[in-house]
């Protein structure tokens, strides 16, 4: 008898362990759900972890107001299908109430405006833990992240003073008003996520598959031609067969030219790709430490 697990089974088992640890150690955890593939995989893992019971987490979506409509439709379907509780933190509301200020100009993005409404939603709903789908292979600041990541009463991350994390023992102790971010799929790679979606036959938004879209080129990548991005006069709109490798805010998520129409096609494309998935994310390109700086303030 062979007592080896496949790598996907072992990763799944680790993630389920982490999710159960969250349910046991925290009183009111939220699962951050963006409608992107990583949070979809987290939700799938949570359903497995607590089966046959329903998942003991509230879904928390930070809506920039500039999301692809397909993402929002997908989110609403999921909420209905699995009978979940959804809390939406709205960037538009935060702008309207003056909590944050809209960026202006050609490169305006609501990406970093998500931080304030996210922290406000955590505080208002008294969430003591927010589960996220961030992975260590995504970005170099995330490579140093813990599974259980402490946030102070201002929601801030202190990368220089993180708790050591040994074996599979997770220390979620905190003071009142502080919270934790927990990342169950820390050890997964982009390829693991796609292989898992394929293996488990998990539904994902159509945006991940090839489709015709009006796009324009900026800084070497294709952006969706929509009214929420101000185009320069020379930025010409063309129709292309594209798909998205990550799904974020429309203003900063680049599309790739692709004919991948199935999960098999996507996996083959990812396997031969020479650029990381966040290579198409303008939010990371602002500076070398863009992600670290946002994370310190309380970003996902």
């Amino acid at each position: 008898m062979d007592y080896n697990l496949t790598h996907l089974k072992e990763l799944e088992s680790e993630s389920i362990f982490v999710l159960r640890e969250v349910a046991a150690q925290f009183e009111n955890p939220a699962l951050m759900f963006s409608g992107g593939k990583d949070s979809i995989v987290c939700l799938h893992l949570a359903r497995k972890a607590f089966y046959p019971a329903n998942i003991p987490f509230t879904l928390l979506h930070v809506d920039t107001g500039h999301n692809f409509p397909e993402t929002i439709d997908f989110r609403d379907e999921i909420v209905k299908k699995y009978n979940l509780r959804l809390v939406v933190a709205s960037v538009q509301d935060a702008i309207d109430t003056g909590l944050v200020k809209e960026e202006k100009g050609y490169n305006a993005s609501r990406n970093s405006l998500q931080i304030a409404p996210l922290l406000e939603a955590i505080e208002a709903n008294k969430f003591d833990c927010a589960i996220g789908g961030a992975r260590r292979d995504e970005e170099k600041a995330r490579a140093k992240e813990r599974f259980f990541s402490h946030r102070d009463e201002f929601g801030q991350w202190n990368p220089k003073n993180q708790r050591p994390e040994l074996w599979n023992i997770f220390n979620g102790r905190k003071e009142y008003g502080e919270h934790f971010r927990v990342f169950p799929i820390s050890n997964w790679t982009e390829m693991d996520v796609w292989q898992y979606i394929y293996q488990e036959k998990i539904d994902i938004p159509n945006l991940y598959f090839t489709h015709k879209r009006q796009v324009f080129q900026r800084d070497g990548q294709w952006l969706a031609a929509t009214e929420v991005i101000q185009r320069r006069p020379n930025e010409e709109v063309v129709e292309k067969d594209v798909r998205f490798r990550t799904i974020g805010d429309m203003t900063c998520t680049g599309a790739v030219e692709s004919h991948a129409s199935s999960l098999e096609d996507i996996i083959n494309e990812v396997a031969s790709s020479r650029v990381t998935e966040r290579g198409g994310r303008a939010d990371d390109k602002r500076s070398e430490a863009a992600m670290e700086d946002r994370k310190k303030q309380g970003y996902f």
């Binding site: 080896n4 697990l5 496949t6 790598h7 996907l8 072992e10 990763l11 390829m191 292989q195 394929y198 293996q199 999960l263 098999e264 996996i267 083959n268 990812v270 396997a271």
Partner: peptide, 13 residues
Amino acid sequence: NKVDNKGYLDMEL
């Protein structure tokens, strides 16, 4: 990691 190379689902960690 190609899908047509089905072995990938049996990888160990």
